[in-house]
Amino acid sequence: MLKTTDLCAGYNMAADILHNLNISICEGECVAIVGKNGAGKSSLLLTLVGIVAINGGNIKVCGLDVTKANLPEIRKRAGLVFQNPDDQLFMPTVYDDIAFGPRNYGCSEDIVKSTVLEIASQFDISELLQRNAYRLSGGEKRLAALAAVLVMQPQLLLLDEPSSFLDPCARRRLIDLLRDLPQTKLIATHDLDLALDLCQRVIILNQGSIAADGNCQELLRDQALLNINGLELPLSLMNYQISNI
């Protein structure tokens, strides 16, 4: 589903943010990318959809090389949900925002309407469709942004800090929703509890390089490894340790 080989990438040729990344993700996997601020998590996601330039190595997304010619198809197959929904929602209404992708890919208005209504009902946001995205709560914006990406039926879902701006209930609802999605998921997050809840595998990034790659339950219990990479034990595991003392 996704394979990077010796990937180096950056916002300009002079300075790489990502250094020689080799990542391979199979279909159906749910993988968390964790790391401290500036480790390169968001940049990696942006590189996968061709927004950050590749300075070396290569990326294959859904069997296609990330090249300029393949970008429209790659962006259809790999949906990126941005960290801040305000960066993603820009149309006058939620309906238009969800319909933006399918319309750009040339779907007829009937198909657009039916798919938008279907995804809205799946996400329980049908009553928000005619509302302005600026006026939604953080949780509602997050769901609208996710729906706007999923409406294009991507095979690979890239999520950048999906739990940011969410209250505990909205966060729980989002986790349940993501768990039910069949797509391959790559989640860049600081929320290690979310990673524990959702992902089987975790990749720890440090200064643009892979510090560790392996089973989520094992790596996120390794306090020494986490501390070296500027992270802390997930809250749920801390509570577990405290209750065992």
């Binding site: 941005f82 960066d87 993603q88 933006f100």
Partner: peptide
């Protein structure tokens, strides 16, 4: 960022 989000959706 907004423009990048637009490009990501075709």
């Amino acid at each position: 960022r907004l423009y990048a989000a637009m490009k990501c959706r075709g």
